[in-house]
């Protein structure tokens, strides 16, 4: 290990880590929005919406995220979508993780015993009220941990934008490997930063899960 080199380059890695954090936060927010919309569509009483929801999940989970990213960034201009690399990264990866989050959220909702909504309906609550007051609060608790798994995957997943030259952690590591010929040091430096991000997020998810846990 060339510690002198590590000390020299680590500020650039920290800067890059900020970009990775920005990408993570934005893609996860977009993913949660897409997941909620996708779930609403998949559980809708309208057949067209159910089909669209299922198609969204199937297409985005059935093809590589990298291809989706390339299609949007390089192919987008051909159909009138002009995005810079960072924007394409946020939108492409957000849509991608949104498909996985759709399955997580839907899974949590359908895991809630139907008797719960039924009991609420017999008290006179409308379908919407029963969902809002009874099914959803329970489903939200149930989805925290699996969404945490999605989020963990997505933090690492932001590395894909290195392939469209967004200067985040993996791109920076790749560039310094090329210029210093020290792959182990650069991997170690970027890797530690990823692990720090994932550990903090994981602790946050676990804290939230504990906080809302029922007796």
């Amino acid at each position: 290990m060339d510690f002198e080199l590590i000390l020299k380059v680590y500020p650039y890695f920290l800067e890059a880590a900020v970009v990775t954090v920005e990408l993570s936060v934005l893609t996860i927010i977009l993913g949660l929005i897409c997941g909620a919309l996708g779930t609403a569509a998949r559980l809708s009483r309208f057949r067209v919406l159910r089909f669209l929801g299922a198609a969204y999940v199937s297409v985005f989970r059935g093809t590589p995220a990298l291809i989706q990213l390339f299609l949007l960034y390089f192919g987008g201009p051909q159909i009138g979508i002009q995005l810079d690399a960072f924007e394409a990264g946020v939108i492409g990866l957000g849509l991608n993780i949104g498909a996985y989050m759709t399955e997580t959220m839907r899974g949590a909702i359908i895991a809630i015993d139907h008797g719960q909504a039924e009991a609420a309906r017999t008290l006179g609550l409308s379908k919407a009220q029963a969902f809002r007051k009874v099914t959803l609060p329970q489903a939200l608790r149930l989805m925290i941990r699996p969404l945490g798994v999605n989020i963990n995957a997505q933090i690492k997943g932001t590395a894909l934008v290195a392939a469209i030259s967004v200067v985040e952690l993996t791109y920076t590591a790749q560039r310094y490997i090329g210029s210093t010929y020290k792959p182990f040091e650069m991997f170690f430096l970027a890797g530690i930063l990823y692990i720090i991000l994932i550990t903090i997020t994981g602790k946050g998810v676990a804290y939230l899960d504990r906080k809302v846990r029922l007796p």
Binding site: T170, Q174, F184, A190, G191, Y194, I195
Partner: peptide, 11 residues
Amino acid sequence: MGTPLLLQLFL
């Protein structure tokens, strides 16, 4: 487990 596959491939 804690790092991106792409980074591992470069390594």
